[in-house]
Write a protein that binds this DNA or RNA. Structure first.
Lengths: 253, 253
DNA sequence: CGGTTGCTTGAATATATTCAAAGTTAGTGG
DNA sequence: CCACTAACTTTGAATATATTCAAGCAACCG
């Protein structure tokens, strides 16, 4: 449950070519020209504490981010405070794209742990589209991937039982985390509270607690240190009738 | 509840420049060059009956479509047959983009009424990205718009009460329909059954029926001819605490 | 130590599902 | 024109699932 975050003494700590994320097999290789552009597109790094609001609904953010490290989540609120968590954001994910394309943000993003982000300027997005069609295609691909994850989440909230939903959620987040090297060789530990789980599944806190208990009893997960340690992803997947994300590699901007 | 669909005697019935949809104020104006490319990108028209499956989960469709007329919906199934409707598709919407970008379809699309679609070849998508960055941007914008709608749907299914959910759904679909000229000067009639509503809201058919009854009692909608006539969109919006899609204009491919 | 945050529990209540059946409507074929 | 069917809507009752309310507990922090 740790994230490397060092004080921001320089505007540019990690060069894109040496980005540790890019070395992971999940991400497709970029050629030199693409890498050079992405490097120049990068305007700085942002590091935030756990609990920080990165982007908020209704605002008109001038930036676009790629997560370098840490965990976060996207959510929406109703007037009276009811909250729905839409998806989680992990290293390699892009945030703020919706806002960059369409003006105002329609959702908020909050950090679940300390986070380190790569910052891009939305104004240069058109330049990317003009000069780098391959990267433009990648951005559409990334938007489409988010859509696919939302489809799955909606299926889950709409049609799975509480137990299946919880199993799906934890398997889903843990398997995404694995792919970006979180948890290393051991088990993934997700830094969420049961309130976050409740707000993702569309259930009350009390009922979520009782549902998670069943997963604990089956030894599929452990709950500790204010987080969830996922012991048996395959078991969770079987319980939820979920076959996993069938991604081979994906782009990293 | 009618859709103009004439027999397909020619491969190309409507030229893009004269596309009746394009004339609507919802859609942004395209310049001649863009219009010429879109026209050349178009490979034909597809007209299908109510109930037809346009795209199905797991398949590897070679095509991309824009809806010219009629109603449809996107959905996913669980192994045991439980169905979740993810979103509705209306004239001006693009379908099959996810499949085109990422290979296999992860959801299915079915026609709710007779539909007329404009067909594009996925192989030429890269050509579009290379030669027409403005259109490439538009496609990303379209993907992002779908994501935004899914965010709203997820908020609704996860956090709204049954009554609020039903009100939101009908207001949402009706207001999208209005924008593309469906219903003309009168009230919008949505060609869905209560089973569709149930599968969208994540509720059982029986409970959905009892919930819709409350909307009927409040005279917000009427149910007839196997469809829903939306009488009072503002009333539905107020009930659901939903402020509407804040779109000005959007691209039409 | 006192305060806060997060987890846990039981009981009362509310919401939603399942089961079973019947009514309605439009369409089909005799 | 009528009987028959299929698809959709409606209803009531029994049951299951989930929420709310109300406490209490454990860990952590200043």
């Amino acid at each position: 449950m740790s994230v490397q975050s060092s004080p921001t003494d320089m505007a540019r700590q990690v060069s894109c070519a040496n980005c540790p994320l890019r070395a992971l097999p999940t991400f497709r290789a970029f050629d030199d020209e693409e890498l050079a552009f992405v490097s120049s597109f990068k305007r700085g790094e942002l590091s935030v504490d756990k609990g920080a609001t990165l982007l908020s609904e209704g605002s008109n953010s001038a930036h676009l981010f790629t997560v370098l490290g840490g965990w976060g989540f996207r959510y929406k609120l109703l007037e009276d405070g009811r909250r729905q968590i839409l998806n989680y954001v992990l290293p390699g994910d892009m945030i703020g794209l919706q806002g960059s394309l369409m003006g105002k943000m329609q959702h908020s993003v909050e950090a679940l742990s300390p986070m380190l982000l790569c910052m891009f300027e939305r104004d240069r997005l058109m330049e990317l589209y003009r000069g780098y069609p391959g990267l433009a295609y990648d951005i559409t691909w990334i938007a489409s991937r988010e859509e696919r994850m939302l489809d799955e989440n909606l299926l889950s909230v709409g049609r799975r039982s509480a137990l299946e939903r919880a199993a799906y959620l934890l398997a889903f987040v843990a398997s995404r985390a694995r792919k970006v090297g979180m948890g290393g060789s051991g088990k993934v530990e997700i830094p969420i509270t049961q309130q976050h789980v409740a707000d993702t599944l569309g259930l009350s806190l009390v009922h979520t607690n009782k549902t998670i208990r069943k997963l604990l009893d089956r030894k599929l997960v452990q709950w500790r240190d204010g987080g969830c340690k996922v012991l048996d992803i395959d078991g969770l997947m079987a319980l939820a009738d979920w076959t996993g994300l069938d991604e081979s590699t994906r782009p990293l901007l």
